[in-house]
């Protein structure tokens, strides 16, 4: 029973973290049918930026994190405009190759600049403690992940459902041609969505650094994981992504609790089984 509760709680924490990082991926894939293997780069860069701002520049924690997130979102704009958007119309393979190229470059540069070892994220005093729930002691950082994760989902939902940008975004996801015929500047929507996703990933990378440590191979280590969230949840589907992220977070946590020796094997088997059985996502339409 205790194990079950642990799996449940840690699984939710991990799932919400995956959601934060992968949600940008699901939006850009839904929008431009763009396969991005480099999305984890933004999470890693967010982590590095925050560490640098707080440790080297001496910024207080919260402003450091906010500036780091905004900086990564800003950096993603020229990247989308000048590099990524050039392969939107190209075959999936070109997108895969280009984004692997980006991953390799960023892994290499991070290694050269920050060293190959894990860089530890500073956290303020009030986040270093832990909370005793009675049946389980929960580190404050995990509570941070849960709160930021839930807030992100609600915020994104409101953004998509209630704002003008959200309507334009959903219309573009639905059909780029129609949206552009309706006078929506789909290029602008795509760039903004890309920046939003990059910022979300950076935020996830920062608050989740205790679970997914910041190191140069971060984008490669978690590549399958982020992509799998999108494949399971369905491209361009916000709720689907949340469900997919929670499911995968839960599976990963369960394997770590129940069979720590075999956890990565079992996890990959689970991913393979789920995606082979439902290649269009859990909520996807059947193949046309």
């Amino acid at each position: 029973m205790g194990t079950l509760i642990n799996i449940l709680i840690d699984g939710v924490v991990y799932g919400l973290l995956l959601f934060m990082i992968a949600v940008g991926l699901t939006i850009t894939m839904g929008l431009m049918r763009f396969i991005n293997l480099a999305h984890g780069v933004f999470a890693m860069l967010g982590g590095y930026a925050a560490i640098w701002l707080i440790r080297q520049m001496g910024l207080p924690w919260l402003p450091g994190v906010i500036i780091a997130v905004l900086a990564i979102a800003a950096i993603s704009v020229p990247l989308e405009r000048w590099l990524v958007s050039r392969v939107y119309q190209r075959p999936p393979l070109d997108q895969v190759l280009l984004t692997i190229g980006i991953v390799f470059c960023m892994v290499a540069i991070s290694g050269l600049v920050f060293g190959t070892r894990v860089s530890s994220m500073p956290f303020p005093e009030f986040l270093s403690g832990s909370l005793d729930l009675g049946f389980k002691v929960l580190p404050a950082q995990r509570i941070l992940v849960v709160s930021v994760g839930v807030a992100s989902f609600v915020g994104l939902w409101l953004l998509l459902e209630k704002t003008r940008f959200g309507i334009q975004l959903r219309a573009t996801v639905d059909n780029v041609q129609t949206a552009s015929a309706m006078g929506i500047n789909t290029r602008r929507v795509a760039t903004l969505a890309f920046a939003l996703g990059a910022g979300m990933a950076a935020l996830g990378g920062i608050v989740g650094s205790a679970l997914m440590p910041i190191e140069p191979y971060y984008p490669l280590t978690y590549m399958v994981l982020f992509l799998a969230v999108v494949a399971v949840g369905g491209q361009g589907n916000l709720t689907g992504t949340l469900v997919g992220a929670l499911l995968l977070g839960m599976i990963d946590t369960a394997t770590k609790y129940l069979a720590p020796q075999l956890s990565s094997i079992l996890f990959f088997v689970a991913i393979i089984v789920i995606i082979s059985l439902r290649p269009n996502g859990l909520f996807g339409r059947a193949a046309v």
Partner: peptide, 20 residues
């Protein structure tokens, strides 16, 4: 198992198989 999947799903499956 994999060849029924297309595009992104197929690519992920092959990466996951390598990792496995």
């Amino acid at each position: 198992l994999f060849l029924r999947a297309h595009g992104l799903s197929f690519i992920i499956l092959t990466i996951a198989f390598g990792s496995l």
